[in-house]
Write a protein that binds this DNA or RNA. Structure first.
Length: 482
RNA sequence: GGCGUAGUAGAACAACGGUGAGUUCGGGGGGCUCUCAAUCCCCAGACCAGGGUUCAACUCCCUGCUACGCUACCA
């Protein structure tokens, strides 16, 4: 039975990199009919807030990931928050201490800092081992008398070959001489991440650890702990990092980085899900659009790419656009509502709004685009400001078109086909190219020469409004010409 | 500094010890007797560098370069 986990530390919003890690874990679990566990790495109590936990759960749920076991769900391997597992960590720390795989260090945080500095100044390499050797019994006694707790340091075996058998990277070799002893429990009694995570993964029977590449270098240390405690170690899969277009780690200064950011910007979860799945992974056949079910079906860790993936927001927008176009109009309208309400508090998803949304969707990349696009329909239209638009309106031929329409509009039935037939007929009747007809009309009715198809604009506006806008434009032209 | 990982067009991916190095986004141009969009067609653009191994290397090996990560009583 395959068991994987996503273990965020709830110190802020979910970064897209973490979301992608969660996604790969999720896809892997579902593909293999395994169990997906949500665990909270909240040992850092100061930075982990209830608010952050809530928003994390909200975001990950919005994103489309659900879990079988863990936080809020429970299960046989709880508790699922590290902050509630201190007894467990202490238990195993005691074992390590007893077996001599770890030792206590009787120095305060301050003292260690000073010693490190001294080593640095004299160009010597610092190690806990050396400090320990100089510790002396007096110091231990004094430490105890003062009621201070020692830090616990893990003793790294010498000259040990460690191979991380990584599913995406193959065998990665390390030698234990490359690293020095390291702290596993701080003097404040709280275990260090690298240690707690090993205990948790072992106790929760995690079979595959799928996580970001930045953890690869720490993996040999973790393996040493697994071995010292005689835990079997899981398979590892280190997936590449997500970079910004400047090839550095995607961070706040690049703008939107968290799932919450993208949600607020009006991206659809399905698009996000699809897009992130394709960051560092691709199916054999090179397809780009997948439902969640298809991704579950196709996903394998073996086809995960080793190179860092670059987050290209323009591709995300393109993909989001595709998803918006495919959405049912009722759903699209509901999703767009919050943005529309900001500009028009009284708006509802009634027939008119549905038509509006349905008409404009083809020009939307993200949900809030609807606000700008619908302006000509909801707040009316003044005379265009732009030079290009003005030039189009002032064209002699344009005036001919406007006049002809005003004379004949009574006879047009406001249906797609009828309107198009009528507009098409104009070319012959007036001897004008399509451009000469469509451009001025769109400017007069919509304010710009590009936008939705004209027949849609006609229907959306209704006969009366079409007449009024054309009349208005004609008046303005007359005024300016005189 | 040590260790690790990666390096195919601007971006995401693909294939292959012998190719015309393929697909998608983006860029440029054109068709679709209106724009944007969609769609179709065309164009530009890539195997990080240097050595080896081999009849043959983008592909295997080594070195270098570059980027990133780890090297914390951060996670």
């Amino acid at each position: 039975m395959i068991r994987v986990r996503y273990a965020p530390s709830p110190t802020g919003e979910i970064h897209v990199g973490n979301a992608r890690t969660a996604l790969f874990n999720y896809l892997f679990a579902r593909h293999n009919k395994g169990t997906f566990i949500l665990r909270l790495d909240d040992t850092d109590k100061k930075r982990s807030t209830d608010q952050a936990i809530r928003s994390m759960v909200e975001d990950i749920t919005w994103f489309g990931i659900d879990w079988d076991e863990g936080y809020l769900k429970g299960g046989d391997y709880g508790p699922y928050s590290q902050s509630e597992r201190m007894d467990l960590y202490n238990h195993y720390t005691d074992i390590l201490l007893k077996e001599g795989s770890a030792y206590e260090l009787h120095y305060t945080d301050e003292e260690i800092k000073n010693i490190k500095e001294q080593y640095e100044k004299s160009m010597k390499t610092f190690s806990y081992r050396k400090v320990k050797e100089l510790e002396g019994e007096a110091r231990v006694r004094e430490f105890k008398e003062k009621g201070l707790t020692p830090a616990v340091v893990f003793k790294v075996l010498e000259d040990k070959e460690i191979v991380v058998d990584d599913i995406v990277r193959g065998d990665v070799h390390f030698n234990s001489n490359e690293f020095k002893d390291f702290v596993i429990r701080r003097s404040n009694g709280i275990p260090v991440y690298n240690y707690a995570t090993v205990i948790d993964d072992a106790l929760m029977n995690i079979t595959h650890v799928i996580r970001a590449e930045e953890h690869l270098s720490n993996t040999p240390k973790q393996i040493l702990i697994f071995d010292a405690l005689k835990f079997p170690h899981p398979y590892f899969a280190h997936i590449s990092l997500i970079f910004a277009p400047d090839r550095t780690k995607l961070s706040k200064r690049h703008g939107a980085t968290s799932i919450g950011d993208f949600r607020r910007m009006g991206f659809l979860p399905e698009a996000m899900f699809n897009f992130l799945a394709l960051l560092g992974w691709s199916p054999k056949d090179g397809r780009e659009f997948f439902t969640k079910e298809e991704l579950i079906e196709l996903f394998t860790l073996e086809s995960v790419n080793k190179a860092p993936a670059i987050f290209d927001i323009s591709k995300l927008k393109w993909m989001n656009h595709k998803y918006i176009v495919e959405l049912g109009k009722e759903i699209l309208c509901t999703l767009a509502m919050p943005y529309l309400k900001e500009a028009y508090p009284d708006i509802k998803c009634d027939e008119k709004t549905l038509l509006l949304v349905d008409t404009l969707r083809g020009n939307m990349n993200v949900l809030p685009d609807i606000v700008k696009l619908s302006e000509p329909f909801l707040t009316g239209l003044g005379f265009p400001e732009g030079e290009e638009e003005k030039n189009i309106l002032f064209d002699k031929d344009s005036i001919k078109v406007f006049k002809y329409i005003l004379e004949n509009i009574e006879n047009i039935e406001f249906k797609e086909q009828k309107i198009n037939e009528f507009l098409d007929g104009l070319k012959e009747k007036l001897g004008l190219s399509g451009k000469k007809i469509y451009h001025p009309l769109r400017v007069a009715l919509f304010g710009s020469k590009s936008g939705p198809e004209l027949w849609k604009i006609f229907i959306l506006l209704g006969k009366e409004e079409v007449v009024q806008r054309i009349k208005f434009v004609l008046e303005q032209i007359k005024k300016t010409s005189n």
